[in-house]
């Protein structure tokens, strides 16, 4: 089974994605979803601009997704990542993991996100509320540390 991977500018519909993953299945006992949103801190941000490496972004998400399916014996996995300008409160990323039981579904979604953050070629640039073009977001050591727990 291959993960369903998409990189797109438009928003996604959580329920529609769950329905697509579980349609006609009788063996799925657990579905875990993670949604990452654009977050503003102290009203300083008007938008994040998400840049990606077309082709490699999809390939890397597919590679990580296959690892997750194999490691946690998932019954289904969907990952959608948006690009372009995204405003505070809007969706950036979606991961859905389906498994017979909850622990594998939780772990599968968690694993997918940890590796996606550090390996999938996406970059965030901040646009300020005052119209300024801000800085590129820096990579966080905490994200590398989060990935280490799966060793």
């Amino acid at each position: 089974m291959s993960p369903a991977i998409r990189v797109q500018s438009q928003d996604f519909d959580l329920q529609a994605e769950i329905d697509a993953l579980t349609a006609g299945r009788r063996d799925i006992g657990a579905v875990v979803t993670f949604t990452g949103l654009c977050r503003d801190e102290q009203g300083a941000l008007s938008a994040l601009e998400l840049e990606h490496y077309p082709g490699m972004a999809e390939a890397e998400m597919l590679r990580i997704g296959k690892l997750a399916i194999e490691r946690f014996s998932l019954l289904g996995l969907t990952a959608v990542h948006r690009y372009g300008k995204i405003r505070p409160g809007e969706n950036i990323v979606l991961v859905i993991a389906a498994a017979p039981h909850r622990q594998a579904a939780f772990d599968g979604a968690n694993f997918m996100m940890d590796f996606l953050k550090t390996s999938a070629p996406f970059w965030k640039k901040e646009h300020g509320a005052d119209g300024s073009q801000g800085d590129w977001v820096s990579a966080k050591d905490a994200d590398d540390a989060a990935r280490e727990k799966w060793k």
Binding site: H81, F122, D143
Partner: peptide
Amino acid sequence: HVEHSEKIAGAREIGIFPPMTGG
């Protein structure tokens, strides 16, 4: 993804970028 020690012979396309900040 490759390490800096990787040989580039035969590469068709080489991507160069900062650490990733998606998700």
